[in-house]
Amino acid sequence: MYQHHFISGDAIDLPIGKVVCVGRNYLEHIKELNNDVPKQPLLFIKPSTALCDIQQPIYIPKGHGSCHNELEIAVLIGERLTNSDEKSAKQGILGLGLALDLTLRDVQDQLKADGQPWERAKSFDSSCPMSNFVPVGDIDLERNIQFSMAVNGKLRQQGNSVHMMHSILSLLVNISQTFTLLPGDIVLTGTPKGVGPLEVGDDLDIMLIDHFSVKTKVI
C-alpha cells in the first residue's frame, strides 16, 4: 500500500489524499499533441488509489490501447491551502518529487472526441507511480528544477520548471481558489514534450537532477 516517504526513506505522517493534475503546462507538449493552449490551468484529479511506489514495477493495463508516460514534478502539500497567496502556498509545501501521470492515450482520444471527461484514461488504479520526496528546504523553488526520464537507456523526456507556463506557486494559488488542498494531497505540475507509449519490459531511469535517481521497470 502506498505511503508518502522522504528520500531518506523516512515515512511521512500524512494521510494519502487526492492527486490534482495540471494539463498542458508546457508549450512544447501542447504542440506535440496538437492541443489548444488553455486560457487558465487545466485541472483534473486522480483518486488516492491511483498512487503507487515508482520504485516498484509499473503495471500497464491490458486491452486498452497504448499507455503513455507523462513525467511531472510533484508537490506534496503539508498545510491546508484555501484561497492562498504565493507566500502561504510556499509555506504549505512539504516536499517535491517526481510522478508519472500514466495515460491510456487511445482511451483519452476517444473520450475527448466524445466530449467526455478523462478519468477513464487518467485515474485507473496505479496510474500515478510516485517517487519519494525531497524536503522543500533542500530545493530552491525559485530556481530551475530539472528532471528527466530515459527508456531503455534512451532519453525520452527532459523538463525544466522554467519552461512551465504557470509556476509551481501560481498553480497552488490558482487551485486553492477553486478547492481546498489538504495535507497529504499531491499536485502534479504538467509534463514536458516527449510523451510516448510504454511497453512491457521497458527499463526506466528517472532523475530529479541534483537530488535523486530511480530505476524501475514496466510489467
Rank of each mutant, 00 (worst) to 15 (best):
Q3V: 15
F6D: 13
F6W: 15
I7E: 11
S8A: 08
D10I: 07
D13R: 13
L14A: 12
I16Y: 03
K18V: 12
K18P: 03
V20M: 12
C21R: 07
V22R: 09
G23H: 01
R24M: 11
R24H: 07
N25T: 10
N25Y: 05
Y26E: 09
E28P: 07
K31P: 08
K31A: 15
E32Q: 14
L33K: 12
N34R: 10
N34F: 03
D36M: 11
V37K: 14
V37G: 12
P38I: 02
P38N: 02
P41D: 13
P41F: 02
P47R: 01
S48W: 02
L51Q: 02
I54S: 02
I54E: 06
I54C: 06
I54L: 11
Q56G: 03
Q56I: 00
P57V: 01
I58A: 01
I58G: 02
I58N: 01
I60N: 02
I60E: 03
K62F: 04
H64W: 08
H64E: 06
N69P: 00
I77Q: 08
I77M: 04
E79N: 14
T82K: 14
E86F: 00
K90S: 15
K90V: 00
K90H: 05
Q91T: 04
G92M: 05
L98C: 11
L102S: 04
T103E: 11
R105T: 15
D106T: 10
V107G: 04
V107N: 07
V107L: 08
P117Y: 02
P117M: 05
W118A: 11
R120V: 13
R120T: 13
K122A: 05
S123E: 02
S127W: 04
F133Q: 11
V134R: 07
D138V: 05
D138A: 12
L141R: 09
L141A: 08
E142P: 00
N144P: 13
F147V: 00
M149W: 00
G153V: 00
L155V: 11
L155H: 02
L155E: 13
L155F: 01
R156E: 12
Q158N: 10
N160A: 10
H163G: 08
H163E: 12
H166M: 09
H166R: 15
S167C: 12
S167I: 10
I168R: 07
S170N: 15
S170I: 13
L171F: 13
L171M: 14
V173W: 04
N174I: 05
S176Y: 05
S176T: 14
Q177H: 15
Q177S: 15
Q177T: 15
T178C: 11
T178Y: 07
F179G: 12
L181S: 01
G184A: 06
D185C: 00
D185V: 01
D185T: 00
V187N: 03
V187C: 04
L188K: 13
L188Q: 12
G190S: 09
K193R: 14
G194M: 10
G196H: 14
P197N: 10
E199K: 15
V200P: 06
G201K: 01
D202S: 00
D203K: 12
L204S: 01
I206G: 04
M207A: 13
D210I: 03
H211S: 05
H211A: 06
F212K: 08
S213E: 09
V214P: 04
T216R: 01
T216K: 01
V218A: 00
V218S: 00
